[in-house]
């Protein structure tokens, strides 16, 4: 027990970094994903529009199609070779936000696709503007549709944040691993697991509450 209290401060400072990456990534990636998804929906007619859409699809393909670990290494160790240097924390945020925005964009695209075109048409014949239709009719439905998938990604993100280990950031996993190697005991790693479980437990609880708040209609 005394040992646990000895290593707890180190683990908790690791938790702080983990939660920092987690929170900033969400704040950056969810709005970015929503904006990008709007570019993925329409069938553009102009050459510029088509090029823009292809570019977005390429971005989603690259960031969903390669390991996040590779993206982290590429941004922190690779880009300095061509003169683009990030500090460790910024490199982690850039990689996480770009990676998660690609996933969120696809989730939102699916959400928009799941709302019947007739909802836009009904809004149109009621003389509502396109923005009013989005704001009052379509986006509220999209949010309800995407909540389970977003919740899934959010829980993944807590665990994925441990990948920052590879670029030398002192997150929760690193703190546990150092203590475990130094004191030759499994206990720190068990504790790390327990802390991750607690974090995901809280997030699962929040997810259920939010989904319940949207269950007033079907």
């Amino acid at each position: 027990m005394t040992y646990i209290f000895q290593i707890l401060p180190a683990l908790l400072s690791g938790v702080k970094l983990t939660l920092g990456i987690f929170a900033i990534t969400l704040v950056g990636a969810i709005p970015l994903g929503l904006i990008l998804s709007v570019g993925l929906i329409p069938k553009p007619k102009s050459i510029l529009g088509k090029a823009g859409k292809s570019l977005l699809e390429g971005y989603v393909w690259v960031f969903r199609g390669t390991p996040l670990l590779l993206q982290l290494m590429f941004i922190f160790y690779g880009l300095p070779i061509i003169g683009i240097v990030f500090d460790r924390f910024s490199a982690a945020l850039v990689a996480f936000i770009l990676n998660y925005a690609a996933y969120f964009a696809e989730i939102f695209r699916g959400g928009f696709g799941a709302v019947d075109e007739g909802q836009f048409e009904a809004s149109t014949v009621l003389n509502m503007t396109r923005w009013q239709a989005l704001r009052y009719v379509v986006i509220p439905q999209v949010v309800k549709i995407v909540l389970p998938s977003i919740g899934n990604e959010v829980i993944n993100l807590v665990k994925d944040s441990s990948l920052v280990y590879v670029i030398g950031l002192g997150d929760l996993l690193r703190a546990g691993n150092i203590a475990s190697a130094r004191d030759v005991t499994l206990l720190p790693l068990v504790l790390v697991g327990v802390i991750y479980l607690l974090l995901t437990l809280i997030l699962t609880f929040l997810q259920k509450r939010i989904e319940a708040a949207f269950s007033y209609y079907r």
């Binding site: 007739g118 909802q119 809004s123 009052y136 009719v137 309800k144």
Partner: peptide
């Protein structure tokens, strides 16, 4: 217009379905 599938707004109450467009 009254659509074949009605296209009511599922996220809004009956009352709000009717008053949304006029208030906007």
């Amino acid at each position: 217009v009254v659509f074949q599938n009605f296209e009511l707004f599922p996220n809004l109450s009956v009352m709000r379905n009717i008053t949304l467009a006029p208030t906007l």
